[in-house]
Simulated scan of single mutants.
Amino acid sequence: MTKRQIAYLACTVALVGSGLGAAAPAAAGSPKVHRVKPGESIQKAVDAAKPGDTVVLSPGTYRESVRITTSNLTLRGSTVFPTVIAPGKAADDTCAKAGHGICVTGKDGSPVKRVTVRSLTLRGFAKNGLWASRTDRLKIHRVTAEKNGNWGIALERSVRSVLTHNVARDNADAGLFVSNTTDTESGAVDAEGTKISHNRLSGNRIGITVRRLRNLTVDRNEATGNCAAVFVVGDESKPRAGAMSLRQNYIHSNNKHCPKTPRLPFLQGSGIVLTGAEETLVAKNRIEDNVGSSPLSGGIVLFKSFVGALNERNEIRDNVVLRNGSADLANRDTGKGNTFSGNTCEVSEPAGMC
């Protein structure tokens, strides 16, 4: 062995001994997985998690409410056997006190960002299964929200949200509810491309409610067995609600009866209802067998809002709308610029739109 080879080997040994030639250890800030079993506290794991971490719940039933205020956090259950979150003992926590199951909440000017909630069942809460306020890029995927006292999954003051492949059933009000705000009166806000897609809504008062928002899509959802399937709600405030698209949804047999409220008549047999909206596209939906005698009954219904705001410049085209009562297409409004074209239907109000 030459002197040069001996010197090379000595250098190599020194590098390995010092750790420079070994694999680098995991960075202190690497994402972690926090695992929780039934009987353990979900909230404790969420509080310990850092941005980028995942909290994984084993199958079983957890009786607590959970509040998420950390950005870039994932909370998920089992993808094989059900993970259920249900009401538990009263807790000294704003989320639990409000009667919600999961709360994802940011602050004015500082939204909580990129939170994902997936593969969970939220059942039997006094208010909402999942409540989100002041969020950005919230993802809710394969969540079942059932038998909650108000909304199944509800968002306000939130942008760029993605709600996909969820099930909302037998909730007292809307299965999915998205809104500008719920505690103040203001004009519609830009939802910045919020997407509501491939969800199944059944047995609710209303399947999906979109209230005072602009710039979002509602596509490829199925709604059946509700009192009403989809409500787009606006009013006289500015900006107006609208500038959204409702496409390729399957809406059928939403014939449950719901009594009137201070703001709405009784509901039964409503497919898609627009009230006080503008510049909304309703296209390529299949809407069948929604039958009732409410002022809001029918396949696709335009109805002035309950403060008198009119629908204007909405486009209703290329839908299959059949066997709905009292009409497949109903324009019970006096707003200007609403168009109906290319629809397959049998009965319209006024006549001549089929």
Score class of each variant (00 low, 15 high):
residue 2 T to L: 06
residue 2 T to K: 07
residue 3 K to A: 09
residue 5 Q to E: 08
residue 8 Y to L: 09
residue 9 L to E: 03
residue 10 A to D: 01
residue 13 V to T: 11
residue 18 S to C: 11
residue 21 G to A: 14
residue 23 A to F: 03
residue 23 A to E: 07
residue 24 A to T: 15
residue 30 S to R: 05
residue 32 K to V: 04
residue 34 H to K: 00
residue 37 K to C: 05
residue 39 G to P: 13
residue 41 S to R: 03
residue 42 I to Y: 08
residue 45 A to D: 12
residue 46 V to P: 00
residue 48 A to R: 11
residue 50 K to A: 08
residue 50 K to Q: 04
residue 50 K to F: 06
residue 51 P to W: 07
residue 57 L to H: 11
residue 59 P to E: 02
residue 63 R to P: 05
residue 75 L to F: 11
residue 77 G to D: 06
residue 80 V to H: 09
residue 81 F to N: 11
residue 82 P to W: 04
residue 83 T to L: 09
residue 85 I to F: 12
residue 93 D to H: 01
residue 95 C to H: 03
residue 100 H to K: 12
residue 101 G to F: 08
residue 102 I to P: 12
residue 102 I to K: 10
residue 104 V to A: 07
residue 105 T to I: 11
residue 110 S to W: 06
residue 113 K to A: 09
residue 115 V to G: 10
residue 116 T to Q: 04
residue 121 T to S: 15
residue 125 F to N: 03
residue 129 G to E: 15
residue 129 G to H: 12
residue 133 S to V: 15
residue 136 D to G: 00
residue 137 R to C: 13
residue 143 V to D: 10
residue 146 E to V: 15
residue 150 N to M: 12
residue 150 N to P: 02
residue 151 W to K: 14
residue 151 W to Y: 13
residue 153 I to L: 14
residue 154 A to F: 02
residue 156 E to V: 05
residue 157 R to L: 14
residue 158 S to M: 10
residue 159 V to Y: 12
residue 162 V to N: 15
residue 170 D to W: 13
residue 175 G to C: 01
residue 175 G to E: 02
residue 178 V to G: 04
residue 180 N to E: 06
residue 180 N to H: 00
residue 181 T to C: 08
residue 181 T to S: 14
residue 185 E to C: 10
residue 195 K to R: 15
residue 198 H to I: 04
residue 201 L to Y: 12
residue 202 S to L: 07
residue 203 G to C: 00
residue 205 R to I: 03
residue 206 I to M: 03
residue 206 I to V: 12
residue 207 G to I: 08
residue 210 V to C: 15
residue 212 R to Y: 12
residue 213 L to M: 13
residue 216 L to F: 10
residue 216 L to A: 02
residue 228 A to F: 02
residue 229 A to E: 02
residue 232 V to F: 00
residue 232 V to T: 06
residue 238 K to Y: 01
residue 243 A to P: 05
residue 244 M to G: 06
residue 246 L to C: 09
residue 247 R to I: 07
residue 252 H to T: 06
residue 255 N to S: 15
residue 256 K to V: 09
residue 259 P to C: 03
residue 261 T to H: 09
residue 262 P to K: 07
residue 263 R to F: 13
residue 265 P to S: 13
residue 269 G to D: 11
residue 269 G to T: 11
residue 270 S to F: 00
residue 274 L to D: 03
residue 276 G to R: 01
residue 278 E to Y: 02
residue 278 E to T: 04
residue 278 E to W: 02
residue 282 V to I: 08
residue 288 E to T: 15
residue 293 S to Q: 09
residue 294 S to H: 06
residue 294 S to Q: 07
residue 296 L to P: 05
residue 300 I to N: 02
residue 301 V to C: 03
residue 302 L to D: 02
residue 302 L to G: 03
residue 302 L to H: 01
residue 303 F to R: 01
residue 303 F to I: 01
residue 307 V to L: 08
residue 317 R to P: 00
residue 319 N to Q: 05
residue 325 G to K: 15
residue 329 L to N: 02
residue 330 A to F: 01
residue 331 N to M: 13
residue 339 T to H: 03
residue 340 F to G: 00
residue 340 F to S: 02
residue 342 G to K: 10
residue 343 N to W: 00
residue 347 V to G: 06
residue 347 V to W: 11
residue 349 E to S: 15
residue 352 G to V: 12
